[in-house]
Each structure stands twice: as structure tokens, then as C-alpha cells.
């Protein structure tokens, strides 16, 4: 059962389309698991439709409709392009959302050790404010205690982990504010895979952020 959801204001930002790409992806990922938030988003889209209905009208050019008909007749043959899912070799890669696979070179994730029990596979979505990655914690593995320099969003894709505040399972969506210290531990029967989005701590480190690892470990 999913116990951790994005706040309503976050879902509103998502629906209004005003969120950066990486956090948007994290919310979409949660929606794949969560019918409750999915219907909230539907309702928020209805609000968008309602606001559109109540907008103050601005007249358009007289020939706009003709132009549109001309355009659609031109490419009558091209159907709306469906997203083709590349063939993936990597087992984990094939379990992540189809649209994310667009960003994986040759359909593969490139895992790097972050600590003996944690691996990270960064996914570059061409966004500069946030970093998106998958984290894999091995069975019973402990993530070294760390301090977030920037806000971090985590969505559990597989398995579960726990920290001081509770247990997080498949589909759970969590936000950690900058400065919150925690130490996640994977469940003892299964490895845990999470999608995470970290707000790059520009303000704190400026250009030096490029020297930081994905997670910034506290010296403790």
C-alpha cells in the first residue's frame, strides 16, 4: 500500500506544467503506481479546462482555421507518432517508464558504485537544475548517513527501504528537504531500486557542485 504521496500543491504544479523536467518525471513515475493521485491529477486537469473556459477571450486571425486545415491536409498520411520503446537488454532498464528509456544510451543503465552497498545510474534528461538518477541498494544494504545539500525526491520502483521515519515501498513518493539527515536501509529479502531527483545545490556550492558526487556524504 502506498502511504507517501506528493502534496496537493505539488500535484497542482505538475498539472499546471510549471515544474522542471526531472521532478515532473518523478511525479509521473509515482502516478504509474498510484490511482489516488492519478484521479487527483485528472481533477486538477479539469480545473485547467475550467479555467480555460473562464478565460477572457482574445480574437484570433480570420484565416487561422484555413491555415490549420491546410496543415492537416498536407500530412494526412502521418499518424500521430507513437513512442517507440527501444529494445532494452538491462533488466532494470526495461522496468523503468518507457519515456525514460529514450535517455538511456543503447537501452542500458550505467551503474557506478557510490558505496559498497549502493550503486547509482545517472540519467541525463538535459535539465540543469536537477539531477535524475536510479539508486540501487543491495539486500539489507545501508546507505551511508548523508545530508542533502538540495531538496531530494525519491520514488521507490522496486523493493523497499526504511529509515528513521518509516518504511517505504513500491510507489512511495518522498521529499527530503535540504539539510535533513537520514540513513536509508534496504529490506533484508530484496534489493531496492529508487528513482531520485536531486535539486542541484547551486546556491551552496556554485560551480564547485560539479565536483560533488551525486549524494554529498557528511563526514560522520
Amino acid at each position: 500500500m502506498i502511504k507517501n504521496h506528493p502534496d496537493a500543491d505539488l500535484l497542482a504544479e505538475y498539472t499546471a506544467g510549471v515544474m522542471a523536467l526531472a521532478p515532473t518525471i518523478s511525479v509521473t513515475t509515482h502516478l504509474q503506481f498510484c490511482n489516488s493521485c492519478k484521479s487527483t491529477v485528472k481533477a486538477l486537469e479539469e480545473l485547467g479546462g475550467e479555467m480555460l473556459e473562464q478565460a477572457d477571450a482574445v480574437p484570433v486571425s480570420d484565416d487561422l482555421l484555413e491555415q490549420i486545415f491546410a496543415c492537416v491536409e498536407e500530412d494526412e498520411t502521418s499518424e500521430d507518432s507513437l513512442l517507440t520503446r527501444p529494445t532494452t537488454i538491462d533488466e532494470v532498464a526495461s522496468s523503468i517508464p518507457a519515456y525514460l528509456q529514450k535517455f538511456l544510451p543503447e537501452g542500458k543503465l550505467h551503474w557506478k558504485f557510490l558505496s559498497p552497498s549502493v550503486k547509482v545510474a545517472p540519467i541525463s534528461v538535459g535539465e540543469t537544475v536537477h539531477e535524475l538518477a536510479l539508486h540501487k541498494i543491495k539486500v539489507g544494504g545501508k546507505v551511508p548517513e548523508h545530508n542533502h545539500l538540495g531538496k531530494e525526491i525519491t520514488v521507490v520502483l522496486k523493493g523497499s527501504f526504511s529509515d528513521e521515519d518509516g518504511v517505504y515501498q513500491r510507489g512511495d513518493f518522498m521529499v527530503r528537504e535540504a539539510g535533513e539527515i537520514h540513513q536509508p536501509i534496504a529490506a533484508t529479502h530484496e534489493e531496492c531500486i529508487c528513482l531520485s531527483v536531486l535539486a542541484a545545490p547551486f546556491k551552496l556550492t556554485g560551480l564547485k557542485r560539479w565536483l560533488n558526487p551525486f549524494l554529498s556524504f557528511s563526514p560522520s
Binding site: 507517501n4 496537493a8 493521485c37 481533477a43 480545473l47 521515519d165
Partner: peptide, 24 residues
């Protein structure tokens, strides 16, 4: 505003980490 329009379910309105919400 969302609560007034009954657009958001309690699960998504509740503060994070209360753990009191049981949706889905």
C-alpha cells in the same frame, strides 16, 4: 482552493510524513 473545489483527496492534502493517509 483545491479543498474548496473538492479537487484533492485527503491523501494528497495531508502533510508529508504524517503516515496517516491510507489511499489506494
Amino acid at each position: 482552493a483545491l479543498a474548496k473545489m473538492k479537487l484533492a483527496l485527503p491523501g494528497s492534502i495531508a502533510e508529508r510524513q504524517t503516515g496517516a493517509t491510507e489511499n489506494d
